[in-house]
Amino acid sequence: MDTSNPAAFVNAELLRMYVGRRVRAVIQVLRNDGGSIFGKSTDEQELVVKGHPPNPPTTFVEVIGIADSNRSIQAEIWTNFGDNFDVSSYNTICQLANGDFKHLFI
């Protein structure tokens, strides 16, 4: 059992709080150049995710990795989340998991 390296739920807004730390985010893919993905975060801002995206990526992908800067993530794990995903609930979860209920997650 190990909770030393959690990945925080983030949207673009929350990403800036975790620069240099492990995060997880769901991105809507806008452009994929093979080495990185340009996409929209769940709070509708543009993010860059570096690494090796799945081939082909679905509309939504989840990335777990290290927050590079307040606009980019260096991904370690990619998961295709399909073409139907409720972005607004995920975004709410991000806010809750970093707000009153942070102690349940990180």
Binding site: D86, L96, F101
Partner: peptide, 13 residues
Amino acid sequence: DYNEIPNHVAECI
């Protein structure tokens, strides 16, 4: 269905 992930989180809360 990957909506189960935020759903589970919401359930935990």
